[in-house]
């Protein structure tokens, strides 16, 4: 394979930069980063379009509707749009823009897709129950020293480590 890719940034340097981005978020807007919240807004908005009546009566979706603004006009939605743009810019500079399914050579595309779908569903579900994902609850929560942040972080990484053995065939 001809390798035109640029290498990734040194992880410690990337960590410092990510920390500064997070700090900037706190300094400017008083809140940390996030991701799953934007996906929730997308779901709520979609449900509202498909069946507005159901959306407002559902006790979860209804919470985010009825305000003066659409659920899509939220901080996290705009932030995640930024993530798309930022990721794209970085990928373009590094020559990593390419449609592909990334997987271990030991498994089929189909299997990777199914795993991604199941993993995504679990993560989406868990992020709502846990009130935030790796970025919103764990990373941002740890920065403000919140107990919730540390608990969520330990639970996410602890479970992933504990289950790693059972899913090893998919990765190594």
């Amino acid at each position: 394979m001809i390798d035109t890719k640029t290498k990734y940034m040194n992880p410690y340097l990337a960590g410092v930069l990510l920390g500064l981005v997070l700090l900037a978020a706190f300094y400017l807007t008083g809140r940390g980063l996030g991701a799953s919240g934007a996906m929730k807004s997308a779901v709520v908005a979609t449900v509202d379009v498909v069946d507005a009546n159901y959306a407002t009566t559902n006790s979860f979706f209804g919470k985010f509707l009825g305000g003066p603004n659409s659920p899509m006009k939220s901080w996290l939605v705009f932030e995640v749009l930024g993530v798309l743009v930022g990721g794209f810019i970085s990928g373009a500079f590094a020559g990593r823009l390419k449609f592909k399914i990334e997987k271990s050579p030991n498994i089929t595309n189909r299997r990777r897709i199914i795993l991604a779908l199941i993993g995504g569903a679990l993560f989406g579900f868990g992020s709502q129950l846990g009130r935030g994902c790796t970025s919103g609850a764990a990373l941002s929560g740890m920065a403000v020293l919140s107990v919730a942040g540390y608990v969520t972080m330990v639970c996410i990484f602890g479970t992933a480590f504990a289950l790693a053995y059972f899913f090893r065939k998919n990765w190594i």
Binding site: A116, F123, F125, G126, T159
Partner: peptide, 15 residues
């Protein structure tokens, strides 16, 4: 929630 997310992480490979 954290436990479910952890399972999603190792299965799906992303957060």
């Amino acid at each position: 929630g954290g436990v479910i997310m952890g399972a999603g992480f190792i299965i799906g490979g992303f957060c």
